[in-house]
Computed example of a mutant assay.
Amino acid sequence: MEPYEGTLRYLHAVRAAGLATAIVSSSANTREVLRSIDAERLFDVRIDGVVARERGLPGKPRPDTYQAAARDLGVEPSRAAVFEDALAGMEAGRAGHFGYVVGVDRVGQADALRAHGADRVVKDLAELGGDA
Rank of each mutant, 00 (worst) to 15 (best):
M1Q: 15
P3A: 13
P3D: 04
Y4K: 15
G6C: 11
T7E: 10
L8R: 06
L8Q: 00
Y10S: 04
L11H: 01
H12Y: 10
A13R: 13
A13S: 12
A13L: 00
V14R: 14
V14P: 10
A16W: 07
A16P: 06
A17S: 11
A17K: 10
G18D: 09
G18R: 08
A20E: 12
A20T: 09
T21W: 07
A22H: 02
A22D: 00
S25H: 03
S26A: 15
A28R: 13
A28G: 06
N29P: 03
T30M: 10
R31Q: 03
R31E: 08
E32D: 09
V33H: 13
L34F: 12
L34V: 11
R35Q: 11
D38G: 10
E40A: 14
L42T: 02
L42V: 09
V45M: 09
V45Q: 03
R46L: 13
I47H: 00
G49C: 11
G49L: 10
A52R: 00
A52S: 12
A52V: 06
A52E: 05
E54K: 07
E54W: 03
E54R: 07
R55L: 14
R55S: 04
G56S: 02
G56Y: 01
G56D: 07
L57M: 01
P58G: 07
K60M: 06
K60Y: 00
K60V: 04
P61C: 04
P61W: 02
P61D: 01
P61A: 01
P63L: 08
P63Y: 07
D64Y: 12
T65H: 05
Y66T: 03
Q67A: 13
A69K: 01
A70R: 04
R71W: 00
D72L: 02
L73E: 07
G74Y: 12
G74K: 09
P77L: 13
S78A: 15
A80I: 02
A80C: 01
A80N: 05
F83E: 03
F83S: 07
E84P: 12
D85F: 07
L87C: 03
L87A: 10
L87D: 09
A88S: 14
G89Q: 02
M90H: 07
M90V: 04
E91L: 13
E91K: 15
A92N: 00
G93K: 11
G93I: 11
R94H: 02
R94F: 09
A95H: 10
A95D: 13
H97V: 13
F98Y: 09
F98P: 05
V101R: 06
G103S: 06
V104N: 14
D105T: 08
D105F: 06
R106P: 04
R106L: 13
V107D: 14
G108H: 11
G108T: 13
Q109C: 14
D111K: 07
A112E: 15
A112D: 14
R114A: 06
R114I: 03
H116D: 12
A118Y: 09
D119I: 03
D119H: 14
R120K: 12
V121R: 03
V122L: 00
V122E: 05
V122P: 06
L125P: 04
A126L: 13
E127Q: 09
G129H: 12
G130C: 05
G130N: 00
